[in-house]
Amino acid sequence: MVVIKRFALFFSIWLSLTAADPLGLVLGTMTAGAAAWASLKLLPSGSRHVNLLSVLSMAPGFLLRTARGGVDVAWRALHPAMPIAPGWIAWRTSLPPGGQRVSLGIELSLLPGTLVAGSRGDVIYVHCLDTNQDVAGDIAKEEARIARTVQEARISHD
């Protein structure tokens, strides 16, 4: 099942790269197969069940937060007074290691004002652009959202 999903992903990338040129279909099938095999070697699926639908349902919100993050930092960079107060937060996360923490890292790095710079044990180090804002509250919200998405995906799978 996982093999088929990954093959479909790589094959659709091949199709958009070659504009579905029929001459390339055989080669594309072989390449996508090899890519799916390599990706399973490098990143075994493990016990994580990621529901494609729930990931897709996150996409609009993801784009919106990306846009908010960009607008926020652009405004601060262009503002004559440059309203920033950079600082660090050491955040103890309750998410299990692996995919969920990686998504938290990527999400926080896109959100307005936060950027993840590594972790030690359960503590992740977050750089904040403006420490006068309630950054800790934002991180907690984001963490809860990721945990909820994973839980929903799990329920719909069982």
Partner: peptide, 20 residues
């Protein structure tokens, strides 16, 4: 060019430029 420390500059690059 304007932000005072490395990590703030990284904010500007990764977020603003990707949106651009």
């Amino acid at each position: 060019l304007r932000f005072p420390d490395f990590h703030s500059r990284l904010h500007a690059l990764t977020k603003a430029d990707n949106l651009g």
